[in-house]
Design a binder for these strands. Structure first.
Lengths: 158, 158
DNA sequence: CAGAACATGTATTTAGCATATTGCTTTTCA
DNA sequence: TGAAAAGCAATATGCTAAATACATGTTCTG
């Protein structure tokens, strides 16, 4: 049982933005801080924008910023948005009739109860819970200009 | 978020055996009743045997039978055994240090709490809960000798 | 208008799951 | 005692979806 790295990245981007406060962060900056693929992150950011979690500013000097306060972003809700498929077994799909015992099978009910418990546990936390305490996380993400970056920080030369 | 069909099959095999009572069932019989791959089911049955859920009788006239009473087989326990990996995100692995913020990341704790809630929900049910009521399930699995089989029932001719 | 930054679609790679194939071992019954 | 029935076990392969890369468009700033 795994979540997609897509969901993983989504949560991490939100954490980054929450730590950044009101400042804009670029995708390149986030990718560098975590040492992950910038290309993949662009899609994640795009979807987070569509879902209303972040607001994006295009063009030069643009970037991302949280569209809602961290304490208003509920984790279960994020996961429901980003995870492509919360169907634990094939017969969760409404059109599935492949299993012989489908009409009388109690397993579906038990599994969906478990899934609900999973999401309910996430619903008890918000993004604000994930960025407390702030200081050590900010240090690891090298917000301080003189701090050592996580990956190799490429010198941008004119 | 999905479970493997391996886990799905495991639960379904256990349900079949619970409905069958003390009688032996062959793998071929189970596969036919559900209309699924016999080859794949063999691995499932083997693992269920290793885990102590079923006892197998080899040789002519052999087959499978539950090794424990249905009300003693807790679903969460089965899932923990059959699911290859309950690590929701890569950093659940003990040797993973790929994520920059690993040391101070609160996400791991939140996610493992949710996973525990998922399993706890399953722990509140046993195999006995899944086979109640018995009659309609037995009918769908065509236990009656004159019933219509799930797949095509191949006539075994001498 | 030039360049920086996000937007968006497509293509390729990859990894893990699902399935098939094959041969072995154990047991029972004729 | 040997053949057949049934599970045991390893290996191979095909398939799907996720992950990633790539390419190009669009929008804003200075």
């Amino acid at each position: 049982m795994r979540l997609t790295v897509y969901t993983d990245f989504s949560l991490r981007v939100l954490m980054f933005l929450a730590l950044k406060g009101d400042e804009l962060a670029t995708i390149a900056e986030v990718a560098k801080a975590y040492g992950i693929s910038k290309n993949h992150l662009m899609k994640v950011a795009y979807q987070l924008g569509l879902a209303g979690y972040v607001e994006t500013v295009r063009g030069k000097g643009g970037g991302l910023r949280l569209a809602r306060r961290p304490q208003d972003i509920v984790l279960g809700e994020v996961v429901r948005h980003t995870e492509p498929d919360m169907a634990l077994v094939p017969c969760f799909a409404p059109d599935d009739a492949s299993c012989t015992i489908f009409p009388s099978c109690a397993l579906r009910g038990v599994l969906s109860g478990a899934r609900d418990a999973f999401l309910a546990a996430l619903d008890r936390h918000t993004l604000a819970d994930l960025v407390r305490p702030r200081a050590p996380l900010q240090k690891l993400l090298s917000f301080k200009p003189d701090g050592k970056a996580a990956g190799q920080r490429l010198a941008r030369r004119a």
